[in-house]
Amino acid sequence: MTNDDLEQLLQPSLKEGQRLVPLYSIRAGFFTAFFGGVFATLILNGLNSWRLGRFGRDVWFYLGAGVLWTAVLLWFSNTLFQGSQAPWIVNPRVLRNAGRVLALIILGRTYLSQRDAYKVQDFVGDDPPNPWPAALGAIAISIGLTGLIVALATRSLG
């Protein structure tokens, strides 16, 4: 290791007064994804990224996933409420399950990119925080946001 590398290594990484909060567990992430869908999982994973100080790195992925799901919702609403015969796939149950699958994929991808942090937390870190307030909040926002998108899509049709 050169002197410069060592000097680089000895630069502080932590800020005075910075409070470190442990990550929400993968279990909390799973249930949020399953019952809250895409927007809920984006919110909870976004919180974890924020805690890890890597929100800037992950935000594009979250935005992409959010835009994709919004597009799916808009297309779905358009197709369902156009009045013409919709294909079998345009079915609220399919939409719900598709949302779950996408949410679980987002969770899986985020977990893989943050796996080191999760493992560190298992080995030397604190217990994960109580996920209920954040998870319920995320699920409520997700439901509201989905309703809003569907309502907007339906109004534009009418």
């Binding site: 060592l6 290594l9 990484s13 932590l14 990550l23 560190v120 937390q121 030397v124």
Partner: peptide
């Protein structure tokens, strides 16, 4: 160890190597 506890895994890895 401090870096691990604060979830700075990359830096912890460099420090353990040193």
């Amino acid at each position: 160890h401090l870096m691990l506890c604060t979830l700075h895994v990359d830096k912890a890895s460099e420090l353990s190597k040193e």
